[in-house]
Simulated scan of single mutants.
Amino acid sequence: MPQKVKAVIARSKDAPVELTTIVVPDPGPGEAVVDIKTCGVCHTDLHYVEGGIGDDYPYLLGHEATGVVSAVGEGVTNVEVGDTVILNWRAVCGECRACKKGDLKYCFSTFNAEQKMTLEDGTELEPALGIGAFAEKTLVHSGQCTRVDGVDSVDEQAAVGLLGCGVMAGIGAAVNTGEVKRGESVAVIGCGGVGVAAVAGAKLAGATTIVAVDIDPKKLAKAEELGATVTVNSKEQDAVEAIREATGGVGADVVIEAVGRPETYEQAFYARDLAGRVVLVGVPTPEMKIELPLLEVFGRGGALKSSWYGDCLPERDFPMLVDQYRLGRLPLEAFVTEKIGIDEVNEAFDTMKSGDVLRSVVVL
């Protein structure tokens, strides 16, 4: 029987979000209903509110979530009722050209639930990133559920749930896309949530020199807490020169751009060593353009790469990173700045804009 639950929606562009009642249908074939336990407040959710993703309002917000499977539909075999899961927005299809080439991380046809959750009047909701987890329950495709074991307390769930988006994007930019190796040098430009996660990923991969660049001393302090060996305030120092100085004058083996702006991407390009790798994980806007001398692109060699969702495979990466967290090698709890109620999402967006948090996490 369909269930009525409390949830947070964006009804129209730039309007304050609303806590309202939604209807969650019983799961159909391949679908699962998940009782949400925690959900991080991600900048992507704010993009939905501001119209930066599209105009398919009303949106059911929230996507960095943990929960417990409470019902499954016909044919579901990867999870069972009672499983603790992290939700993800890459449920690979196995059939598209990327999957058939073995590049599952680039799947062009990821799955979402076919049924729609609705408002009480029947208005269909568009779930953020196909998840919609600022809700007591949500309906997803079963492939969006990655089972994790031994994550029982609220604090643990709040921490590991952030792997569902931003933290995975940053860690994966270092570990998967950048392929950071033991003993290499890494620079991270932009130390918001994704950037500091890239710092943590570089440390986890064994980088010995990790340079963090930002204009905010608070963010640089957090980057240092998570593994940066050198911090650079680019208001006070030239970022490229500082990165070269920290790496023996040659530049970093890997430079991760976590801002998504032409000027910081250019810094990343020139701050790498010969044959170094640049990884773009910051998300640019459609009108942005960059111009680089083609001879410099040729002469420096190496690779210019983009990182989508940290090039992760959730079923491979989430359990591995949860294990690293439980072993004390990956301090995911450091990303949780505050825990809030489901009725405090508007305030969390205001706090996010101030730059005073890495993540607010809704606890249900």
Rank of each mutant, 00 (worst) to 15 (best):
N78C: 10
G193V: 02
P29V: 10
E347D: 11
G206K: 00
L61H: 01
Y309V: 02
A128S: 12
A187M: 04
D83V: 05
Q267H: 02
P217N: 01
W89I: 08
V361L: 15
R359A: 10
V250L: 14
T351R: 15
L280T: 09
V254A: 07
L226P: 09
Y265W: 11
L313A: 13
G67Q: 06
E333A: 06
G52N: 14
A239D: 00
A252F: 06
V160C: 08
T66Y: 02
L162D: 01
K305E: 02
V211Y: 03
P27Y: 13
G54F: 08
V167P: 00
E315Y: 15
V186D: 03
W89Y: 15
A268C: 09
A135M: 07
G170H: 02
C312D: 10
V188H: 04
S307P: 04
V180Q: 09
P331H: 01
I22F: 06
E64Y: 03
R316P: 06
V5Y: 03
T110E: 14
A246S: 11
F108M: 14
S109G: 11
M1Q: 04
V76D: 03
T337H: 04
L292M: 13
D83H: 08
Q267P: 03
N346S: 15
G328L: 01
L364Y: 11
R326F: 06
C107L: 12
V24M: 05
D26H: 02
E80D: 12
V154F: 12
F108A: 15
I131A: 13
K101H: 13
C191E: 02
Y325Q: 01
D273G: 11
E266H: 06
E241D: 12
